[in-house]
Design a protein around this nucleic acid. Structure first.
Lengths: 340, 340
DNA sequence: TTGAAAGCGGTACCAT
DNA sequence: ATGGTACCGCTTTCAA
């Protein structure tokens, strides 16, 4: 009960009323000055007094109160995904955030690790974001989408393999990646093609369409496709390499450059010549691939600029029921080096 | 097939008053039921009616209104850093978020890319977080820290090379990494040691203490340390390798495993034997290093568990003026393989 | 067991 | 050119 208040410790947070009192004006005036409202005219002398008072108190407006009153937060919520993401994605992501801020949105990543899809959607809805952009896990369900829209989200955008009802879908068609790899290997005369499927959880979103893309590419050519499970560990790669010759493969698409390096090393260690006896292909075009010997052939991914996506979000927010063009975020291109 | 409910576009977001009306009770009762307030007793029949009404309307409480009323948000704000982070960090980070949520905090990453330190602090303060954990850029200034504390943040925690006044400092002493590398190279008889300093911006935070650590390790041994600027590009590495012999170095600590791979490849390409003519050492103990030939010696970093840091945050929030023990997040250990 | 009502911090309309 | 004031959605006494 009888605490001795440390002057700095228990001082209450200053509000606009405090600023008004100190400047000898009303709260309304404080609001006008600090927001530069053009509809009302405030004398220069008053403006100055208000600004000084605000500075002196270290006043910072309360975002929750403001958005409560205005009814909208201009907050774009990005569920933080659990999937470990590479440098491509992180570059794209930074651009996206930057562009959104310049469109006057507040970008917030919400840690949703380990939440069930519908719990997550509910937690997001509590924040009343104007837009939700769900790029990774947890996936949005139709119910989750509906909940978000009901709670005022103008744009619910998802990166969906199969579209979710009510959400604007953004395509990031990873089957393209597989298709590129498949065609390339086919052209170079390979007929028995292995496709690495990582065992790490959370990657199915990418690995499944990539595998399907390879299958689509070789369709009708007489070539066969063999899925190969692989964990991102040396032992797993060594085991796979050990039984390699029994598989009778003459090429492998290794999911991405990192798995490709892992597998290629293991193959070389058991005396298999790359690309002579077996071609190896990666994806993502990391620096890594250029440093390997043989240099790694790969599928390069160009992500649309973050600016582009930011503008798309903004357009949907302003006109939620407008035509929902399907946006493709990604373009894949084969880069031929020495490993195929 | 699927219908887009146009009507939903203009339907207002349901509030607790709507739930109350539908259930035929007061807003107070709704609040009691939905929050399971134990101080008041509500009949089972009423509870049920309220729950059903809430479900039917798709009611989700408004976080801003709630925290405005209650005066605190239990939000932990993590400024999202621009620095591309590796798998270690991302594992640590996920743990941290998970642990915080289980202590009943809401974890929010705020995209602050390209904001000046004091602009950023102000933007964070508007959200009235109960804690701010600034692990990367933008750095907290003393002024920014003060602003945050004034606006109600109980804990302002920074990962600072030099402590910031008013903030709880968390040590992540990267000079340890350099010290490990330096001692190891010294023990193995090297006397002219190069240290790679990445040219990429945003990495000074790590590279400077690492360099300083090497210097500290060789202090008084008669060995010399030579900083080497290097960009993460093949051309830059090739150029450095081209003038390597004029430098007269017999060992190099390459900042981390990725730069080590880049440099080692370039050295091998100009015919320099590793480790015969020059030893190469990395850091971070990535899978990558074990796949190279020679296998890369490295400095392994163990990050304290996220659980650990989460508990620290919680402790500071509950007792902001308690003793501020200095926490070390990281332990470094040498892993000797073949490249040294 | 339930309801009425007073705010939390800001904003904006309507007076003055 | 300013001030008074009614809200925004929710929690929490206090009364009934």
């Amino acid at each position: 009960m009888s605490q001795i208040p440390q002057a700095s410790a228990e001082r209450p947070v200053p509000t606009s009323a405090d600023v008004a009192r100190l400047a000898g004006v009303s709260r309304a005036t404080v609001s006008y000055v600090l927001n530069g409202t053009s509809a009302v005219r405030i004398s220069e002398a008053t403006r100055l007094r208000v600004r000084e008072a605000a500075d002196e108190l270290g006043y910072v407006p309360h975002a929750a109160a403001r958005s409560l009153r205005s009814g909208s937060s201009r907050m774009v919520l990005l569920p933080a995904s659990a999937v470990p993401v590479g440098p491509l994605y992180s570059k794209f992501f930074n651009e996206f955030q930057w562009a959104l801020r310049h469109l006057d949105y507040t970008v917030v990543q919400y840690g949703s690790l380990g939440l069930a899809p519908d719990e997550a959607a509910r937690a997001w809805a509590e924040l009343r974001p104007v837009a939700v952009v769900a790029l990774g896990a947890p996936q949005l369900t139709a119910a989750g989408t509906q909940l978000l829209r009901r709670s005022g989200a103008k744009a619910v955008i998802t990166l969906a393999p199969q579209p979710v009802a009510g959400a604007h879908a953004l395509a990031m068609d990873h089957s393209q990646v597989g298709r590129c790899a498949g065609s390339h290997l086919l052209e170079r005369g390979h007929r028995r093609i292995g496709v690495v499927v990582p065992q790490e959880p959370g990657l199915e979103m990418f690995s499944e369409p990539r595998l399907a893309g390879v299958r689509a590419a070789v369709e009708g050519s007489g070539a066969t496709v063999v899925p190969l499970e692989l964990a991102y560990e040396e032992e797993s790669a060594a085991a796979l390499a050990g039984r390699w010759r029994t598989l009778g493969l003459d090429a492998v698409f290794a999911y991405n450059d990192e798995y490709a390096m892992l597998l290629m090393r293991a193959l070389q260690d058991v005396g298999i010549d790359v690309p002579g006896e077996c071609a190896v292909m990666g994806a993502d075009d990391l620096m890594l691939g250029r440093l390997l010997r043989p240099r790694l052939s790969t599928v390069q991914l160009d992500m649309a600029t973050g600016q582009h996506l930011a503008e798309f979000v903004d357009r949907v927010v302003r006109d939620p029921d407008g035509a929902s063009e399907r946006h493709d975020l990604m373009v894949a291109r084969t880069v031929h080096r020495e490993s195929t």
